[in-house]
Design a protein around this nucleic acid. Structure first.
Length: 835
DNA sequence: GCAAGGTC
């Protein structure tokens, strides 16, 4: 039997289709797809199926000195046991094995991992094929000219794995131990995440150190006949450049007086030029994320939607660095796939009428995957969620744009002299819309100026002066950060968005655009002082150079990893004496991130704390001497924001709970409001009204939540949730079914359009129903398609998922692994706790 | 429980 091993199931299926001429059948073995035709079997891995780690005796952080990790062994253990078992079973019966993992460094290493697993079972020959896209020609060509595994290239990847583990684990443990943070709030550092964090911290330092400068700008309205247009004052600076900002007030006032005295303005010059506006290059991952972000999608969301569309077969693989379409992509053919479509048809037809179709191309041509483009298979809009359709359309239109004509703009610059003051006005007009006709994501705003000629006299009106200040540099948004990481060679197409997400999870950044926490500033400071390499992007550059040397056979794996161990060892010698100091610095900063302000009872600080049961509350730093506390809401993670409550001098609290993130405000105010609020009785309790006379009342709790609850609480726990915000009004209307009055919620901002909540029992029932309908799709990486598949397997709500037998669901649903399901199950359970 | 890199 001949065995073919690919990097992922999707690749295995497509290769099987090509090589078998569509005759392959699918078996499930240990829950893994195995494609079979004739005497051939083809199986897909799931990326790395083994992982590197320390031997078990290093597992306990308290028993092992972090420095001991520097010289510890590193062992490989299976992480995807079902796949490893299947691979070995297949290998035992194989007469030849072909490794067909992705054509890049990590693919070579994944191939070597498969090689070693196969070698445990058989001496059969193992060869390697390489192809840059899974198309009939490329695949057939590759399989008719098999090559050998490149062990040097794989060793380069192994060196990276080991160095990342040693540095990451040893320094992470050191920092966590020194700050006595061993639980889930450990303090992590790594070769990629820490320079990324430093990038964010450095920008924050620039902002903090920024000293604004005053300047003035002058404007006037020029008029030709009845048409007015704005013009701006400018002058020639010392370097002979055109400048608009006047840097001292006296000059500005003088120029303004002069401008104000102008009766008219004479046109000095009119310059027209045309500018070509080139269509975008094919999408790599970074550019795709960036485009999706201008549609308001986070990097994480953009990637999970793209993965959905990819697994469903509508777009190509979404993780790629490539910005050049492969030769075998026939743009005409792909366009033809859209000509019959009710939405895309017209655009596709018009693009096909061009004389020659020449796609744009970027600078990066790689061998792993083609740029992201539609496959030609078109989903119906109803089958996709809104986000999925939006992204599908983006990818289709982006492909259209890459084969469309450039646009042409006409720029017009008018310079006029007004009483000795020079004024300029810029106009632009889109002469040839070109690719904009099929790609509506970029601005085509025009600025029309009237037709004026040199020497013409124009009216002048409305001269004004504006005092301004220079602004600090802006924080980078997520997609801007990812672009920055790419340009600095940090991380990879598949990891950059995870890196950012990790910084959020670790409590290093908050908000959007991300801002560093005090802890992040302290971690970067500590690292800069004692282990500069870990926050320096140079470490990646050096590693890349070493990996290249290993791949080229110029350096050995041992030499590179030994050298790295020595450097790390030296760092630990430095760190040794500063442990206390570093720990203290980190702890102080962490506390600062959680501090609200003075305790009203004792004057110490009020902090966000966590009870032993895991719920958050506000407690005094003077505990146990001072036992002052305030409650917090029980959904989400509290975080301190900059706004301060003037009455209590406490910073406000924001609750991070994914989609339902909200500002809780000052916890003291919330508690006071609840203490003052009177319960308002609205009817009998449906649980205990008949028997015990319990009544339902609208209640406000000290943690800010409101509910309809029984007056016999805690004997009777019947309750219905109410919204946190807005004024609740009890109306005269009542519910036929439950006998309770209808409620009206008036939000301060939107007085005219109150929310008719209705009967609280009916409202809650409807709310639950809506929840169930969308909750599955709220899980990471689940889109409409996957939700549909899960529903077909009987999983329609989070409750279903919590109670599901993962193994049997995985066996029933194609393309969803047990691991994935387990992750979702964990998310569903975490959600249950948060509720 | 640590990293970063695959994949889902």
């Amino acid at each position: 039997m001949e065995l073919i091993v690919t990097e992922k199931d999707n690749a295995a299926r497509r290769i099987a289709e090509i090589l078998s001429g569509d005759s392959a059948s699918t078996d499930r073995q240990n829950g893994v797809n195995v494609y079979r035709w004739g005497g051939t079997r083809c199986v897909g891995l799931s990326g790395h199926v083994v992982g590197v780690d320390f031997p078990p005796e290093y597992a306990d952080w308290r028993d092992v000195q972090p420095v001991e990790l520097v010289d510890a062994d590193v062992v490989k253990t299976p992480t995807q046991e079902n796949i490893v078992r299947t691979l070995k079973q297949l290998a035992a019966d194989a007469s030849t094995v072909t490794i067909a993992t992705d054509y890049d460094r990590e693919g070579e290493l994944i191939g070597k991992e498969a090689y070693e697993l196969v070698r445990e079972e058989t001496d059969a020959p193992i060869d390697r094929v390489r192809f840059s896209s899974i198309t009939e020609n490329e695949v057939r060509e590759a399989f008719s000219n098999p090559d050998e595994l490149d062990f040097d290239l794989a060793a380069a990847g192994e060196a990276r794995q080991v160095i990342d583990l040693l540095w990451g684990a040893a320094l992470t443990r050191f920092l966590s131990l020194s700050a006595k943070q061993l639980g889930e709030d450990f303090i992590s550092v790594g070769r990629v995440q820490s320079p990324t964090l430093k990038l964010i911290v450095d920008r924050e330092r620039e902002i903090q150190a920024f000293d604004p400068e005053d300047y003035w700008e002058l404007f006037a309205e020029l008029q030709k006949d009845d048409v007015g247009f704005e013009a701006q004052y400018f002058y020639e600076d010392e370097d002979g450049n055109e400048a608009e900002r006047v840097w001292n007030e006296a000059d500005a006032t003088e120029a303004f007086e002069q401008l104000r005295g102008a009766r008219d303005a004479i046109v000095e010059s009119v310059r027209r030029r045309s500018r070509t506006d080139e269509p975008p290059n094919p999408f790599n991952t970074t550019q795709y994320i960036s485009a999706a972000s201008s549609l308001g999608m986070s990097a994480q969301k953009a990637m999970s939607v793209a993965e959905e569309l990819y697994t469903a077969g509508y777009i190509t693989y979404p993780r790629t660095d490539n910005t050049v379409y492969p030769d075998d992509l026939d743009p005409e053919e792909l366009l033809s796939a859209f000509t019959q479509h009710y939405l895309f048809g017209e655009d596709a037809e018009s693009l096909l009428t061009a004389e020659a179709i020449e796609p744009t191309a970027g600078d990066e041509e790689t061998t792993d995957h083609p740029p992201i483009h539609p496959t030609g298979e078109i989903p119906s809009k109803e089958d996709l969620s809104e986000d999925e359709w939006e992204i599908f359309e983006l990818v289709v239109r982006h492909f259209f744009a890459t084969v469309a004509e450039p646009a042409e703009w006409e720029h017009l610059k008018v310079v006029a002299d007004a009483n000795g003051c020079l004024l300029k006005a810029n106009g632009k007009r889109l002469v040839e819309p070109g690719y904009h006709e099929v790609y509506p994501y970029r601005s085509t705003a025009e600025n029309h100026l009237p037709d004026v000629a040199e020497g013409e006299l124009l009216g002048i009106d409305d001269a004004r002066i504006e005092a301004k200040q220079t602004q600090p540099p802006r924080r980078r948004g997520q997609s801007r950060l990812i672009e920055e990481l790419e340009s600095r060679g940090l991380g990879t197409k598949s990891t950059r968005h995870h890196t950012i997400e990790k910084l959020y999870d670790r409590g290093y950044i908050e908000g959007d655009p991300p801002r560093p926490t005090k802890l992040a500033m302290a971690v970067v400071e500590a690292a800069e002082k004692f282990a500069d390499r870990i926050v320096d992007e140079e470490m990646t550059a050096q590693l890349e150079a070493d990996m290249k040397a290993i791949a080229d056979g110029e350096k050995g794996y041992e030499a590179v990893t030994d050298e790295s161990r020595e450097i790390l060892e030296a760092i630990f010698q430095e760190l040794h004496d500063s442990r206390e100091e570093i720990g203290e610095h980190l702890r102080t900063s962490m506390k600062a991130d959680r501090t609200l302000g003075p305790c009203p009872e004792c004057g110490e600080s009020l902090l966000i704390r966590r009870s032993r049961r895991g719920s958050y509350f506000v407690g005094c730093d003077g505990f146990p001497d001072c036992r002052y506390t305030l409650p917090l809401p029980n959904n989400g993670e509290p975080t301190v924001i900059d706004e301060t409550c003037e009455e209590h001098g406490l910073k406000q609290v924001k609750m991070l709970a994914g989609r339902s993130t909200y500002v809780h405000g000052c916890p003291q105010c919330k508690a006071d409001e609840a203490d003052e609020a009177e319960d308002e009785i609205i009817g009998a309790c449906p649980e205990c009204g008949d028997e015990h006379g319990g009544e339902l009342a609208i209640k406000t709790l000290r943690n800010g939540s409101r509910l309809v609850g029984c007056t016999r609480y805690p004997e009777c726990e019947y309750s219905l949730p109410l919204p946190r915000r807005g004024e609740i009004e009890v109306t005269d209307e009542s519910c036929d079914e439950h006998g309770l009055p209808h409620l009206l919620v008036t939000d301060g901002e939107d007085d005219d359009d109150p929310w008719e909540l209705g009967c609280p029992i009916c409202n809650y029932a409807e709310y639950r129903e809506r929840q169930t309908a969308t909750e599955i799709e709220d899980l990471d990486g689940v889109g409409a398609k996957t939700a549909e598949k899960l529903a077909a397997a009987g999983i329609e709500s989070l409750d279903d998922l919590r109670n599901a037998d993962v193994a049997s669901v995985a066996a029933e649903v194609q393309g969803i692994s047990e691991d994935r399901l387990r992750e979702w199950q964990a998310q569903a359970n975490a959600g249950a706790v948060a509720e």
